[in-house]
Design a protein around this nucleic acid. Structure first.
Lengths: 209, 209
DNA sequence: GAGAATGCACTACACCGTGTAGTGTAGTCT
DNA sequence: AGACTACACTACACGGTGTAGTGCATTCTC
């Protein structure tokens, strides 16, 4: 077995530290410009340990990618049920959608996670081979689509293609905000809310029953 | 004057060749992963000449950035007048918008120019200091805003904030297409047109008079 | 049960190979 | 004569590996 590589199970603490460090650096500085030395230093761990836990830099990127994707999906799901569960009053629809969108947008913009995540998917240095990745990336949109379908069933929206509606909603709120204010501070920026509100209104004009 | 650098005026031909080569490489491979040697080789020019024309790699990037921005703006303006000039028949609005959007989207997706342009603005290795850049990046949206305002004046649209409407239109058509199909082949891909059509329809539901 | 031995995660550090930005220069082409 | 090339060269950063050594817990031994 020449290519047999034994990765240590190790204290989950160090592993988490390395992962957090890599996540922070990769997402802010970019993958190429983040050296493994820097990741190790930030995690207060020797470079050798990084290589013992994760085999190489690509694998480390992959681990970060998975983690970010999972946490993003979890946030979306939680916020979805927090703000849009069991809505029946049409008058509450707009404020609820604004609330949902604001929470997601501020969450995402602050750490620039979604942005760089997408950047990884499209441009990643060295293509990502795992087919799981696309699925993971699309999962948040799927979840939103299901929620929109539920709102349609409740008679609040008219949504022939829920998944497409989800894409449109994201584009009108998060997408516009991101492209206007390039991933800089979100909840503090007073320009965010009006953009979101207008995005939600446009969405409702297009999709309200 | 210690930092005085003398850049050659030189035959515009070589300069253009270098610029084209850099543009191609930077946009497809990414800035970091494109070596100056590769740029020089592709332009069939010695590396020394590259450094004689442009001072360093950053400056070369900046020149590419400007050129792409200008050409993008020109394309948008031309397509705008080609497809949306002097529209009066409401029935022609949807097909005209689809046509406009298809042409822009296929143009942009094929060479991935817009994508990577945006990527440069936000993440560029070494922040771009020039204030011109943001303005240049926003110019296409401004142009579209003006056209939408004209369509509103003609009674075809209801557009209180033309610039915002432009952002919404881009998000619904180009933005959605880009995020679904990651910048891969455009006019050949049969999934593009339906996405654009649905984006335009959603836009019209939200903005039609 | 005290102390030695063992195993293991981890560090510190040197090292290799390679890729790349940028320069200096001698020579060639027009 | 000046634009341009070919090329050698510097300086450096980075990915990855090998290894000597350290701290520490568990286990073995008497």
């Amino acid at each position: 077995m020449p290519t047999e590589k034994t990765l240590r199970a190790g204290s989950a603490q160090k592993r988490a530290a390395i992962l957090a460090s890599a996540r922070e650096l990769f997402l802010t500085e970019g993958f190429d410009r983040s050296s493994v030395d820097a990741v190790a230093a930030r995690a207060q761990v020797s470079k050798r340990t990084v290589y013992d836990y994760f085999g190489d830099k690509q694998t480390l990127l992959h681990a970060v990618f998975d983690e970010v994707g999972q946490s993003l999906l979890a946030t979306v799901r939680r916020t979805l049920t927090d703000t849009l569960e069991g809505l029946t009053d049409p008058a509450e629809l707009e404020p609820a959608l604004v609330e949902f969108s604001m929470r997601i947008t501020t969450d995402m913009l602050d750490s620039a996670e979604y942005t760089t995540l997408q950047r990884f998917v499209n441009t990643a240095s060295g293509h990502l081979p795992h087919p799981d990745d696309r699925a993971l990336t699309n999962a948040p949109e799927e979840a939103m689509g299901e929620r929109f379908a539920a709102l349609a069933k409740a008679g609040l929206l008219e949504v022939p293609d829920p998944r497409l509606a989800a894409d449109h909603f994201i584009a009108l709120t998060f997408g516009v905000t991101l492209s206007r204010l390039g991933s800089a501070n979100a909840e503090k920026d007073s320009r965010v809310r009006p953009l979101i509100v207008e995005g939600v209104r446009a969405f409702l004009r297009a999709y309200r029953r």
